[in-house]
């Protein structure tokens, strides 16, 4: 097992030049998630437009894996349907639990397939999942708010 399988070029690129970073208005829900064992943090906002994700913005601090993962996540979900984002979430969580045994589906996960190697390092899986957990939490809150105010 070599560390190069974790630090893929794609991951290092997203780490050095994160996409969609920074907190933006407007938003429907904001969450703050923390990884208590290592101090990684993310504040993440979701803005919905009907069934679609209008924007995901975030401010975060943490290791290359957690930072790159947030960047990849936003690429996958912004401008697409909530359902698509949900499918990507499910696929990513499954990949992270796979201990390196799963061949990821590039159609669903795009750049996130680069994280397959991370799943072999149990201590780093939670780094990769931090932004995704925040995203799921925020999108559930946003959807509840939007449906709540519409009815």
């Amino acid at each position: 097992m070599s560390v190069d399988s974790m630090y893929q070029e794609i991951i290092l690129d997203h780490y050095k030049n994160p996409h969609h970073k920074g907190l933006r208005e407007p938003y429907d829900a904001q969450v703050h998630h923390l990884n208590p064992t290592c101090g990684d943090e993310i504040t993440l906002r979701v803005s919905l437009d009907g069934e679609n994700v209008a924007d995901v913005s975030y401010d975060s601090e943490g290791c290359s894996i957690s930072q790159a993962s947030a960047s990849v996540l936003t690429d996958l979900v912004i401008g697409r349907s909530v359902a698509h984002g949900q499918a990507a979430y499910d696929a990513f969580v499954e990949l992270m639990q796979s201990k390196g045994q799963l061949e990821p589906d590039e159609d669903v996960l795009e750049d996130a397939v680069a994280f397959a190697g991370v799943s072999k390092y149990p201590a780093r899986v939670k780094c990769a999942l931090l932004a995704w957990m925040a995203w799921r939490d925020a999108v559930l809150q946003a959807a509840a708010d939007v449906s709540g105010s519409a009815s």
């Binding site: 990684d40 290791c63 390092y121």
Partner: peptide, 21 residues
């Protein structure tokens, strides 16, 4: 550099340090 990344690469060289708070 985040300590996690530092610690992971040091482990590659067999070096055990602690990272975190």
């Amino acid at each position: 550099l985040h300590p996690h990344d530092v610690g992971q690469l040091l482990d590659e060289h067999g070096i055990a340090v602690r990272v975190g708070h």
